[in-house]
Simulated scan of single mutants.
Amino acid sequence: MRKSGLAELEVVLAVARKRGFVAAAVELEMSTTAVSSAVAKLDRVWVPGFSPRDTQRLTH
């Protein structure tokens, strides 16, 4: 996947649109493992403070 995270973002959008990893994998013609890996990769590169999972406040 590209370093920019755009491919991973496309996967996350498909997961949201299809409301699940399996349906997104079918739509994207990927394995569910590849979908999960793409979501995890984007989660790792996400800008700190903007991730929905981040409970920290922005310091800027």
Rank of each mutant, 00 (worst) to 15 (best):
M1K: 05
R2G: 09
R2M: 12
S4N: 15
S4E: 14
S4F: 07
G5Y: 11
G5H: 09
G5Q: 12
G5A: 10
G5S: 10
L6R: 06
A7R: 13
A7C: 03
A7G: 06
A7S: 08
E8C: 07
L9C: 09
L9F: 10
E10A: 13
V12I: 14
V12R: 04
V12C: 13
L13F: 09
L13Y: 08
A14W: 01
V15F: 02
V15D: 07
A16Q: 11
A16T: 11
A16I: 13
R17E: 15
K18H: 13
R19Q: 13
G20Q: 02
G20M: 04
G20D: 04
F21I: 15
F21R: 14
V22E: 13
V22K: 14
A24F: 03
A24L: 05
A24I: 04
A24E: 01
A25M: 04
V26P: 00
E27W: 11
E27G: 01
E27Y: 09
L28Y: 02
L28W: 03
E29T: 08
E29F: 02
M30A: 04
M30C: 03
S31D: 13
T32L: 05
T32W: 06
T32E: 14
T33N: 15
T33A: 15
T33R: 15
A34V: 00
A34E: 10
V35I: 05
V35G: 01
S36Y: 07
S37K: 08
S37L: 07
S37M: 07
A38Q: 00
V39E: 07
V39H: 05
A40V: 05
A40H: 06
A40N: 10
K41I: 10
K41M: 14
K41Q: 15
L42T: 05
L42Y: 10
D43Y: 07
V45D: 02
W46L: 05
W46P: 00
W46Y: 02
W46K: 00
V47F: 09
V47R: 14
V47S: 11
V47D: 12
V47Q: 13
P48L: 06
G49F: 04
G49K: 00
G49I: 01
G49V: 01
F50T: 14
F50Y: 14
S51A: 03
S51F: 01
P52N: 06
P52G: 04
P52V: 10
R53Y: 12
R53N: 10
R53W: 13
R53V: 05
R53M: 07
D54M: 02
T55Q: 10
T55F: 06
Q56M: 12
R57Y: 07
R57W: 11
R57F: 10
L58P: 02
L58Q: 10
L58D: 04
L58K: 11
L58N: 11
T59E: 12
H60Q: 08
H60N: 08
